[in-house]
Write a protein that binds this DNA or RNA. Structure first.
Lengths: 199, 199
DNA sequence: AAACTAACAGACAGGTCTGTCTACCAACAG
DNA sequence: CTGTTGGTAGACAGACCTGTCTGTTAGTTT
């Protein structure tokens, strides 16, 4: 999801260099589109070192997904908090993270959707992508509940659909109107689903 | 996007067999996840024959995208028509295609989003996926205009975001609640965007 | 009958992929 | 001084990838 790579000012350990490089390359080309040799070359690490930290390439992909999960979920929470204390406002505010991500150089849609598209449905990697979406939706559901939504599950599903739509559109083109319209639609849906205006 | 493969009852030509097989395999595993040899083996065709009809693998992928485009766009139009003559109802009705696709065996999300995720942004293939989404959105925009929407572009953008969200969710899991909620959200958005109720 | 067309069958080249292995080096702890 | 830890450098195996090439077979047209 086009989040910032974890940066380190000081000299990084081999593990960190591998993860940073993998993050950058995997997000840009998809895990399947990047060979282990490329990660090795660009991170300036020995092959044995990479395979010591990540015995199989899939382990590296899972670590990459964990990194993205933290970054993106963090961005969503930050955007929600920035919208104020009212859960109702936060439900709309979290779409700010979408706009921020979309404007970032090299934005290429949702890392989880993109990775899920190229992984087998039963695999560990696919399961991890599903898990991420489940956790995010659970968080939105809780927010919807606190916002007094008539049916929090329903509102959360609708909002995450919009969010995923905005992210999915990002893999095609990074048109900034998508996040803006997603936010506007979210406002309408929240207004329709929460009985009494909080203010 | 999980549309039906073109079927032929009689003996198919080599070209048709190649396209049908490519459709099935590419949709299930992604174009990059299927080797030309596999397409050859499963379609029972000689290698020279495949390369005669499709000089490069990319040509086969483009033909695959054309097939999906026809099938999915056709399904959208059919679902819209099935909802009646009122453009307003058609805007909601087109989401029926999402539910139908989602319930199909082997449903795996949107072929265009999935393919775009694994293709380079400047490539022919990527351009074709963008073109498809553009055409669909233009069609929805026209529908929104005929429905008397205050801002047809805006409503179309919001509805296609929902549609893409529903399709993107399909690559994670084929939960049938997603299409249902997408449709419900579409109803709310259409109601909010079209000034006077038609009836 | 002869020529042409479409397809089949499969070897082959040249490249890339993952993952394993050997050998070496530098820092540091006891 | 010696053993351990963490890293570098790169050869190697075995599989798979795309795309080309040779040769054969069957049906159709002239």
């Amino acid at each position: 999801m086009a989040a910032t790579a974890p940066s380190g000012g000081t000299r990084q350990s081999a593990r960190e260099r591998i993860l940073d490089t993998a993050f950058r390359l995997f997000y840009a080309h998809g895990p399947r589109g990047v060979g282990v040799d490329t990660v090795i070359a660009e991170s300036g690490v020995a092959k044995a070192t990479l395979y010591k930290h990540f015995p199989r390439k899939d382990d590296l992909v899972l670590a990459y997904l964990d990194t993205v999960d933290q970054a993106w979920f963090g961005a969503l929470r930050a955007a929600a908090r920035a919208a104020g204390d009212e859960p109702r406002d936060q439900l709309v505010g979290l779409f700010g993270a979408l706009g921020t991500a979309c404007r970032r150089e090299g934005y290429h849609g949702c890392a989880f959707i993109n990775t899920a598209a190229e992984s087998a449905p039963g695999s560990d990697i696919h399961a991890r992508t599903v898990e991420h979406k489940t956790v995010v939706r659970a968080w939105v559901t809780e927010l919807a509940r606190r916002a007094g939504a008539r049916d929090p599950d329903r509102l959360a599903r609708q909002l995450t659909l919009l969010l995923d739509g905005g992210l999915a559109a990002g893999v095609l083109d990074a048109d900034p109107s998508a996040p803006a319209e997603a936010r506007a639609a979210a406002e309408a849906l929240v207004a329709a689903a929460c009985p009494r205006p909080t203010a």
